[in-house]
Design a protein around this nucleic acid. Structure first.
Lengths: 191, 191
DNA sequence: AATTCTTATTAAACTAGTTTAATAAATATT
DNA sequence: AATATTTATTAAACTAGTTTAATAAGAATT
């Protein structure tokens, strides 16, 4: 749990005893490639941390997967929307590789926050971090062309392109596989 | 400050004494139509609550305003991105009408959170609320057509169309004024 | 009431994507 | 190694927006 501990401490000064209290609730879990951590219609009451692997977070819109995020090592994740609102999920969480994750239940999160002001602060600040990422995402969706967003993803998360098939990346970028292929061709002709 | 108090209590059970402690830091401020609460390049260290009026939150991209949000009565707002990161803003906050707001400084927010676990919880939960809104925004940007987003805005915030010129709404929707006009024409011909 | 200024619509040419379908390339399976 | 399956590219026709520029409508000012 060293990676998890380090990641929490990157947000707030958590004492050893508070950390020990918090970590006791996390449980290790393994998912094989192709396994679903969550399917639409299910409730999600766990919060996860990626120790190893890659998980896709997607919805089905008219039968087609719309990838919203790829969670890789060091990410905290869940279907945060359904988790927060306590409603059935409209999304899927699927292991794109064999994965090792740590999970904690919503009730245990509540216990941890009730017990420790500093861990509640970690909660607030990690929510802030999520805000920053979503804010950037919205700005990118609004102000950048698809080509620019492709180039930016290539720059920000280059290893993703080795781990994930291109048609899922196209989906993440809000494109069809054909559309992304065209963009790549256009770029390869110029440069 | 009754509206402010009510809004805070809609997030967390704050005791009277904690509430009193928190509210002492808020200061009332008035902005005339056209006034800027924030300009690009400035640091923003205040958090605001809209008592009365409408504030646009926008960036300039190649000289053109890109409206990201309209803040109306009951909204908490700031340039949250610059506020959180402590970096100079790239955005503007402009009163579209005469406005009454309450504001609190970042340092005072910190004092309040340090003083009261329940107010820190309010902070976390209001951040969660912001997450939910941004999440929906991202989904709308990704999965809905411009026409659908226009119709949805019309449904969700109908009064906005009486308060705000159409070209700003076009910008909010990520369209040109011409584009929005076309959509409206298309709809009026069908229905 | 007339004028000016701002906002909204329309037209025409253009563009970056879409869809569908065929083909090519890469990967996995027998 | 041969075959089947999955993934990526290309082509062709189409679409919903863009830009620029002209016009019309509405609001504010003299």
């Amino acid at each position: 749990m060293e990676d998890l501990k380090k990641t929490i401490r990157s947000y707030a000064n958590v004492s050893d005893s508070d950390m020990e209290f918090g970590l006791q609730f996390y449980k290790k879990e393994i998912f094989r490639k192709g396994a679903h951590l969550l399917q639409a219609g299910q409730y999600i009451s766990d919060f996860y941390f990626v120790q190893r692997g890659c998980i896709s977070y997607y919805t089905l819109e008219e039968g087609k997967a719309q990838v919203m995020e790829f969670f890789t090592e060091g990410y905290f994740f869940t279907d945060l929307y359904a988790y927060i609102q306590g409603i059935p999920s409209e999304s899927y969480l699927e292991a794109l590789e064999d994965c090792v994750v740590y999970k904690i239940s919503k009730e245990d999160v509540q216990k941890v926050f009730d017990h420790s002001h500093q861990l509640e602060r970690f909660g607030r600040l990690s929510m802030q971090r999520t805000f920053v990422i979503n804010f950037q995402r919205i700005n990118e969706l609004r102000n950048l062309s698809n080509q620019e967003r492709y180039l930016q993803l290539l720059k920000k998360r280059p290893t993703l392109f080795q781990r994930v098939p291109q048609y899922l990346i196209a989906s993440y970028l809000g494109l069809t596989p054909v559309g992304l292929s065209k963009i790549r061709k256009r770029l390869s002709q110029k440069g």
